[in-house]
Structures are given as C-alpha cells and as structure tokens.
Simulated assay, not measured.
Amino acid sequence: MKHSKININRVATLLFTALLLSACSLFDLNLQKDYNRVPHPVDANLHITAWDYLRSRSVENNPDTVFKFMYDGIIYSGIDTNEYKEAGRTFILLHNDAIDRIVKKVVQPDCFFGANLVKGKPATKWSDYPKEMIRNYFEYLLLQGEFTHLKNLTTSDTLIQTLASQGAFINNPQSLMAMKIVDASLSNTVDYPIQINDSVTVRTSDLLPTNGVIQVVDRYINPGF
C-alpha cells in the first residue's frame, strides 16, 4: 500500500505539471529560459533627462518622493547637477531605503546611514558627513557608458569606470563598479536581476531617460567591495 501511495503521488505531480504547461500555452505564457529575455511591452522611455526624473520624484509637489533623500544629498555635496544631464551614462539612483532604512525604529546596516557610522552610531542627516565624502559617493554612482540587460552586461562581472576620482576609496583605488545579470529567477514572472558589486540587486532596471540609462537600488552599494 505504501508503494502504491508513492506511485499515486508521482502520477499526480506529473499531471499537475502537464496541466501547468498546458495553461502556459493556453494563455500564451512562455516559460523563461535564460537571462536574454524579451523585454516587457511596458514603455521604459521616460522622455526626460535623468536629472528631471530624479527631481520629479523628489521635490516637485509630488507625493511620490522616493528619491528625496538622494536629492538632498546631491544638493548638500555640491556635485554639479549637470552631470545628471550628460548623455551616454548609466545613472544609479538611490531609493530612500538605500539611504535611511528603518525597521522597528532601528536604522538598518544595509543603508548608507547605517553602514557609515558616525562616532559609532548611524547618521541622521547628510551634514553628519564631510561634503567631499558624499560627493565622492555620488560620483561613484555615475557610470561611463550604458549598461542594461540588453546592452554591455552578461552573467559575468563587468568592471565599469565610474566618475569618482581614482584613489577616492582605499579598497577600490580605481573607483570601479562591478555589474552582472544574475542567471536565476525565483519564478517565471521575475526578470533576471542586475547585481552590483556582488551584493546589491537592482530594484527597478533599465529605465530610459533621454540621456542614458537609470538603475534604481534600495540598498547601500559599498564602493570598497
């Protein structure tokens, strides 16, 4: 009887799999096979520059202010905002959680304020840091060239030159960033994500402003990876 039960379970599993595959065919849902996937039909073109997009989701009377902390940091650092209007670049934009992520009233170590402690404690504002430090970091998030799922990236790390000055980071003297496509997916509905410095997964990928590419992250990217 025990042997028969196992066989029944196997048959049930096979039938379920067959039905699932049939359903995919019926509703024209193709199983994901590799990271070179066909882009979704949603238009990724923003029709504005990276700077205008960042501002539009930061300060311009918009309840959607997911980049406000980044915008405030840019202004504090004194970096030339025209850098976000230059063409042919990849712009890493920081969701608010990448800067100050709080869970149960505790600043998490995977955000900028939690990873870069001030006198042993998380920072509470950008002015807790020297302006040069913040400017170096934002320059690190500006990449020379356009990098997306369909352009210049593979499943192996690509080392990319950033705008940060060489020597700005002790453990990364050339100020390089590593990017790759992770050739794995939790389900057929999830795109194969872009990973930065072997640790941070891009939250929203391949947005297309008029002057390059935007990748959005919600965790701290360590430039000294």
Rank of each mutant, 00 (worst) to 15 (best):
D64N: 15
L54C: 06
F91H: 09
T65L: 02
S77K: 03
I74F: 06
I79S: 00
Y76W: 12
S77H: 06
I75Y: 13
N62F: 11
K68Q: 13
N61F: 09
F67H: 02
S56C: 14
T81M: 08
S56I: 14
R55D: 12
M70D: 01
P63A: 03
I79Q: 01
M70T: 09
E60R: 08
F91P: 00
R57D: 11
V66F: 05
I74H: 15
L94T: 11
A87Q: 11
N61M: 14
R89S: 06
I79F: 01
Y53M: 14
P63C: 10
N61K: 07
A87M: 08
L54F: 12
I92Y: 04
Y53S: 05
Y76D: 02
H95E: 08
Y76M: 00
V59A: 06
Y71F: 07
N96R: 09
F91M: 09
Y84R: 07
D64P: 15
K85G: 03
F91D: 06
E83W: 10
R55W: 07
F67Y: 05
A87S: 12
G73F: 01
D64M: 12
A87P: 13
D52N: 12
S77E: 02
D64I: 09
Y76R: 08
R55Y: 06
F67Q: 07
P63Q: 04
P63F: 07
M70R: 02
N96M: 05
N82A: 11
T65R: 00
R55C: 13
P63G: 05
I75V: 06
E83R: 10
D80I: 12
M70C: 01
R89Q: 10
R89E: 15
F91L: 08
G78F: 12
Y84Q: 15
N61L: 13
N62Y: 08
F91Y: 14
P63Y: 01
N96L: 03
E60L: 08
W51G: 13
N96Q: 12
L93E: 10
Y53A: 10
E86Y: 06
S58T: 02
T81F: 05
F91I: 07
G78P: 06
S77Y: 03
T81R: 14
L94M: 09
T65P: 04
S56R: 11
E60I: 11
Y84C: 09
V66I: 13
Y76E: 01
F69N: 03
E60K: 10
R57M: 14
F91A: 12
R89Y: 09
Y71M: 13
T81Y: 15
H95I: 00
Y84D: 07
Y84K: 11
R89P: 06
T81L: 12
N61I: 13
N96D: 12
Y53I: 04
A87E: 13
S58L: 05
Y76F: 06
E86R: 10
K85H: 11
I79Y: 00
E86A: 04
F67M: 03
I74G: 05
D52Q: 14
M70S: 01
F69Y: 09
N96C: 01
F67T: 01
D72V: 03
D72Y: 06
G78R: 01
G73M: 00
G73N: 05
E60Y: 07
